[in-house]
């Protein structure tokens, strides 16, 4: 057995799980899909005293939707979320484009959307999508339930606004305005790997002109990067105008903070940032 010894408990009630987190604080770890936690345990990169397995808390399985807004409870797996988005909102939605890039099918059957948000890996797809779509993370602890906007939730590498005695009980992705177009691209060595660099976006296009848009890079910095100035540069420009696109690209290269990783240098990632921008703008042109 590879993990360091731990105590294991699988409460069936949310209150039971919250009481355990309150009691054990940072010596406890929440076990959701385990698709990140189990590897960390096997490598002994983490050694919690108590594993609080939330998989038996039935109400956390819920998928909710209204309009094209969606809510995923803490136990909604990546594969279930993808099915829900495709069936209820459509294959063009940002999450429908992004979820197939999250790991591999066998991992998507078990890993959860909320687990990916709680982990806050800077190269992960879903935190960037949550920031792009202005999702709200629902946290519950001893002192009740609170809703944190995704942009405020992600604080750094594996660091979030969640306190140790809180559980992410769900995430709410608000409905988007009718006619919103989405663009999603990432570059990875192999399908299903974490991205070297990726970009999640939406745009509202009126008569070929960008009325509004939002761009969120992932894999660039320590948390999802909102490219505010780049979006502003694109607003009011025509999709088919090469000058607008060139200006936006230049702005993105300038605006983005790039933390080089072990394998890929800053120069390469910066060039990639420009190429990804071109590609999502092209996606806006054909979508919807």
């Amino acid at each position: 057995m590879k993990p360091a010894p731990f105590a294991y408990t699988a409460p069936t009630e949310l209150e039971g799980a919250l009481a355990l987190l309150r009691e054990h604080g940072d010596e406890a770890a929440v076990l959701a899909g385990g698709q990140s936690l189990m590897p960390l345990l096997a490598l002994r990169m983490t050694a919690p005293k108590v594993l609080v397995d939330i998989n038996r808390i039935e109400p956390l399985r819920a998928v909710g939707h209204g309009g094209d807004g969606l809510r995923f409870g803490a136990l909604v797996r990546h594969a279930e979320a993808l099915r829900a988005v495709r069936d209820q909102v459509g294959p063009a939605h940002l999450l429908a484009q992004a979820l197939p890039h999250v790991a591999h099918q066998a991992i998507r059957h078990r890993g959860t959307v909320c687990g990916s948000l709680a982990l806050a890996d800077p190269a992960a797809e879903l935190p960037a999508c949550a920031v792009c779509l202005e999702a709200e993370i629902e946290l519950q602890g001893a002192s009740g339930r609170r809703f944190v906007p995704a942009d405020a939730f992600f604080e750094g590498v594996y660091a979030t606004a969640r306190s140790v005695d809180e559980l992410v009980v769900g995430v709410r992705f608000p409905a988007t305005a009718p006619g919103t177009r989405f663009g999603f691209v990432e570059v990875a060595r192999r399908h299903g790997d974490y991205a070297i660099l990726g970009l999640a976006s939406w745009a509202r296009v009126v008569d070929g002109e960008v009325a509004d848009c939002r761009l969120v890079y992932f894999g660039a910095d320590e948390r999802p990067s909102v490219a505010t100035r780049t979006a502003r540069t694109l607003r009011g420009g025509r999709l088919d105008d090469p000058a607008t696109r060139a200006r936006a690209k230049e702005c993105a290269l300038d605006e983005l903070t790039i933390a080089p990783d072990a394998t890929y240098g800053e120069g390469y990632k910066r060039r990639l940032a420009g190429a990804l921008l071109e590609r999502v703008v092209a996606q806006w042109g054909v979508a919807g």
Partner: peptide, 27 residues
């Protein structure tokens, strides 16, 4: 690998493929 990357441990749980090394027997 015993940490989720190789797929050699693939089993079918409740009708779906999963990594056998990323689940606990207790689960």
């Amino acid at each position: 690998c015993e940490h989720g990357v190789c797929g050699a441990c693939t089993v079918v749980v409740d009708g779906r493929t999963m990594r056998g090394c990323l689940l606990l027997a207790a689960q």
